[in-house]
Amino acid sequence: MSRLPTGQYIYGESPIHLIDARAKLLSFILLIAAVVLASSFAGYAAVFCFTAALLWISRLPLGTALGAIRRLWLFFFVIFLMNAFFFEAENPIFSWWIFRLSYGGIAQGANVVLRVALLMALSSVLTCTTTPMDMTSALQSLMKPLKIIRVPVEDVAMIISVAIQFIPTLLEETDMIKKAQTARGARFESRSLRHKAECVIPLVIPIFISAFRRADELSTAMEARGYRGAKNRTKRKKEPLKARDLAALFISAAICAVQFCFR
């Protein structure tokens, strides 16, 4: 049986895990803003220490939580080198053809790499401590202000919930179709690019047909029952934010505000 994939989520009971997903998501946005705005040493230090503290408090296994950063080391290295050598500084330490190594460039490279690494670490903390389900419902409730620019927020929320419900079913069906075509001789395991390309159509067309058939059945059933839009549905009452959620928001806002103080 297929179940909903759990993504990056790692089960835990740390204070970070327990913070309400809405507060966590908002804090995350504030912290991202802090990273983007950071321009001074003190500002960077604040964000860096805070991120490290988050990782420690959340008791996540570091290897998994920071795995993405480790896997992308080559990307970081290239970004660093490109900045270091191509930064247009006044007084290069060394220059040859189009390459100009400079202190300004090295600083700029380190700056960019640190920024991206911090963003990745922060998003890791968010996704590792929040289940995808909690996250999507948090997203749905944070979308509400979009009503002002006439986005049909309720309908979007309905579409997202339906999409999530479809994931396990479609995964299972995809698996079956793949097996059926394999038994008929489709060569999914082949190394040749041509064989792989040949496998795409026998797999993708049945998947789409089966998915659209389900969509057709569901929408017909919904219309038959008089569904006209999500506006009038009764909604589950959301729990109010607790003290620790507000504290998380407050601290994140403070880290963000620090960036303005040390510019």
Partner: peptide, 23 residues
């Protein structure tokens, strides 16, 4: 050969002849 529970879901070709000949 294996015939799954809903074998009709594996059809994809433009004509019946091509689909049957896939294997």
């Amino acid at each position: 050969g294996i015939v799954f529970q809903y074998p009709e879901y594996q059809l994809f070709e433009t004509t019946v002849e091509k689909d049957v000949a896939f294997g």
